[in-house]
Amino acid sequence: MSARLSSARTRAALRTSARVSTELLLIFVLLAVALWLLGRMWSVVWPVAIALLLTTLTWPSARFLRRHGWPPALAASVVTVAFLLTAVGVVALIAVPMSSQTDELTDGVVEGIERLRDWAAGPPLNIGDAQITSAVDTAMARVQDSVGSMVSTVATGVSAVVNGLITAILAVFLMFFFLKDGPRFLPWLTRQLPGRLSTDVPAVAARGWETLGSFVRSQALVGLLDAVFIGLGLWILGVPLVLPLAVLTFVSAFVPIVGALFAGFVAVLIALVSNGLTDALIVLAIIVVVQQLEGNVFQPMIQSRGLGLHAAVILLAVTLGGSLAGVVGTLLAVPVAALIAVVWNYVRDQLGDHAEEPAAADA
């Protein structure tokens, strides 16, 4: 009898395991299909994602105007134009001071190269002019041999720039329509969905919108902290173009990894050509320290409070997003993880409410 019971339990456990495995396999297949469809529609999904992030940044201004009697189209137009003017102003704030000192920076670059050459010629390297000339000739020969690959690389870069401009223009137009017609979306969605979905989906969408807004605000705060600390260090060292470099640091905070590397490279280069190698190394140390504080302290703490995610989850999400989709993955990893948490928390709350209802009925 015991053997029969044990055999029956084993068969039941195997059937349960097989059913669960089949369900999990089906879920993975559906996820793979969804990711494949997302990749096929990426040219549309990417501008929409950028537009949503920009809308969360500009919506408070549009909401303020709408609450004071402005028509939705006028409020959206004013906010969109103000955003474009601000973006152009930021670019001008960075470009104009740098262009006005182009000659000084060029002379500094030449002088810096000469200093590096003199340093390399002395101890302990003792690299002579003949060795440097030979190395330059070898590099030029390699460049000439790889002209074809360089041309294709340049063509790819030009194509990427063009696609980036098209994406930016489309995102701005979508931002205008989101600002203008955004409040109508949830009521329209409620009317289109049947039954329970007409309540659940709009509720999840509203929570997701709040989460995206929290992400953008926290990212702006992290960028502000980076700009203040790095700008303060540059000002103390007497490095020129402190304000443009601080603005560049703030803007680049919205592009993880690549943005920080680019802003840091520009700051170190300007410190090298204007103040010398010692100050450039100090600037590099400041940037490394600030970036470490940002990545391991500021960003996880601020975003974990604003998004309701643990700091470790944010770090793992950024790492996973970067490994799967590069820079774009690191940019979208945190908001995607936060939206997944929103859906999970809503489903858990609903299941908890339904679990309590039968218990109350039995009482």
Rank of each mutant, 00 (worst) to 15 (best):
Ile27Asn: 06
Ile27Glu: 08
Ile27Ala: 12
Val29Ser: 03
Val29Lys: 04
Leu30His: 11
Ala32Gly: 13
Val33Lys: 07
Val33His: 10
Val33Ala: 14
Val33Ile: 14
Ala34His: 12
Leu35Asp: 06
Trp36Pro: 06
Leu37Ile: 12
Gly39Gln: 09
Met41Trp: 10
Trp42Cys: 04
Trp42Ser: 13
Ser43Lys: 02
Val44Phe: 14
Val45Arg: 12
Trp46Lys: 08
Pro47Ile: 15
Val48Gly: 15
Val48Trp: 15
Val48Lys: 14
Ala49Glu: 02
Ala49Arg: 01
Leu53Cys: 11
Leu53Met: 15
Leu54Asp: 06
Thr55Leu: 03
Thr55Asp: 04
Thr55Lys: 00
Thr56Tyr: 09
Thr56Ala: 14
Thr56Gly: 10
Leu57Ala: 15
Leu57Phe: 14
Leu57Glu: 13
Trp59Asn: 02
Pro60Val: 03
Ala62Pro: 04
Ala62Tyr: 06
Ala62Gly: 04
Arg63Pro: 00
Phe64Leu: 02
Phe64Asp: 04
Arg66Thr: 08
Arg67Tyr: 00
His68Gly: 00
His68Glu: 08
Gly69Lys: 03
Trp70Arg: 03
Pro72Asp: 12
Ala73Ser: 03
Ala76Gln: 01
Ser77Pro: 00
Ser77Lys: 06
Val78Leu: 15
Val79Pro: 07
Thr80Pro: 03
Val81Ala: 10
Leu84Gly: 02
Leu84Gln: 04
Leu85Met: 11
Thr86Phe: 08
Thr86Leu: 10
Thr86Ile: 05
Ala87Arg: 04
Ala87Asp: 05
Ala87Trp: 08
Val88Pro: 00
Gly89Gln: 05
Gly89Tyr: 03
Val90Asp: 06
Val91Gln: 02
Ala92Asp: 04
Ala92Thr: 05
